[in-house]
C-alpha cells in the first residue's frame, strides 16, 4: 500500500516536472544570493555555509508542503482514501516518503555543488550531504502534520510556515551543527545519532498525528 502511494505520487510529480524543478531552483537561488548579501569574503562564507544551506533547505522543503495533500483534496481522492479500509497512517507515511523523494532527495544531491560555491573542504561537503540526507525526511514528516492541519484553508501556505518552522529548529541546529563540528575537528557522531533519533521519533509519531489531523480537516 505504501509502495503504491509512493509510486502514484511520483508518477503524478513526473507529469508536472516543473513543480519539482521550482523547489530545486528556489534552493539554489537562495543559497547563491547569500554571498551577494554578505560579501565575497571566503573565510566568512565558509563559516556561514552550513547554516545557509540548511536554512535554505528548510524553506525549500516547506514551500512544497502545500502540494502534499491539496491535489488529492481538490479532486476528491483524499476523501476516497479516508473511506478506504487501508490504514490512514500508512497512507500518510507513503505520501511523506513521496514528498521527500520529490523535494528532499534533489536538495541532498545538489548540496555538495552548492557547498563548493562556499569553498567547503571535502570532508565538510560529505558531512553536509549526509546531514541533509538524515534531516530532510524529518522535515517532510513534521511538515506533513502542518500540511494536513491547514488543508483547504485560506492563506494556508503562509500559515503552514508559522506552524512548521519553529518545529524545525532542532533539525536545523543539529544538521548545521554536524558540519561545524566536523570542520572544527570535533566529532560529528553525536549530532548524527541525534538526527537519527529525531528521524525515528518522527517516523513513529508523525504519520499518526498527520492521520488525526487529516480526519479533523476533512470533518
Amino acid at each position: 500500500m505504501i509502495l503504491w502511494i509512493i509510486k502514484r505520487d511520483l508518477l503524478l510529480a513526473m507529469r508536472r516536472r516543473a513543480d519539482v524543478l521550482t523547489t530545486l531552483f528556489f534552493f539554489i537561488i537562495v543559497v547563491s544570493l547569500f554571498p551577494l548579501g554578505v560579501g565575497p569574503e571566503m573565510n566568512t562564507l565558509r563559516i556561514m555555509a552550513p547554516g545557509i544551506v540548511w536554512v535554505a533547505a528548510l524553506l525549500a522543503s516547506m514551500l512544497a508542503l502545500g502540494r502534499m495533500f491539496s491535489g488529492d483534496y481538490t479532486d476528491g481522492t483524499l476523501e476516497q482514501m479516508l473511506l478506504s479500509p487501508v490504514s490512514l497512517s500508512a497512507l500518510v507515511m507513503g505520501k511523506a516518503i513521496a514528498h521527500w523523494l520529490i523535494t528532499g532527495v534533489p536538495l541532498v544531491l545538489i548540496a555538495p555543488v552548492l557547498g563548493i560555491q562556499y569553498d567547503l573542504p571535502a570532508e565538510s561537503l560529505m558531512v553536509l550531504t549526509l546531514s541533509l540526507l538524515m534531516g530532510t525526511p524529518v522535515l517532510s514528516l513534521i511538515g506533513a502534520i502542518g500540511a494536513a492541519l491547514t488543508l483547504g484553508l485560506r492563506g494556508g501556505g503562509v500559515l503552514v510556515s508559522l506552524l512548521v518552522l519553529p518545529l524545525y529548529v532542532p533539525v536545523l541546529i543539529f544538521g548545521a551543527g554536524a558540519v561545524e563540528a566536523s570542520a572544527a575537528g570535533l566529532g560529528f557522531e553525536a549530532h548524527f545519532s541525534l538526527l537519527g533519533a529525531f528521524l525515528l521519533v518522527s517516523v513513529v509519531c508523525s504519520p499518526w498525528a498527520t492521520a488525526a489531523s487529516l480526519r479533523i480537516s476533512m470533518g
Partner: peptide
C-alpha cells in the same frame, strides 16, 4: 502565535478546536 493563527484561520469552531489541539500537543 502558530496556535492562535491556526485557530483564527479556521471558520468551523469544532475543527479549529481540534486542529489547535494537535498543534498544541505537537508543541
Amino acid at each position: 502565535i502558530g496556535f492562535m493563527s491556526l485557530q483564527a484561520a479556521i471558520d468551523d469552531p469544532r475543527r479549529a478546536d481540534k486542529a489547535g489541539a494537535i498543534i498544541a500537543l505537537v508543541g
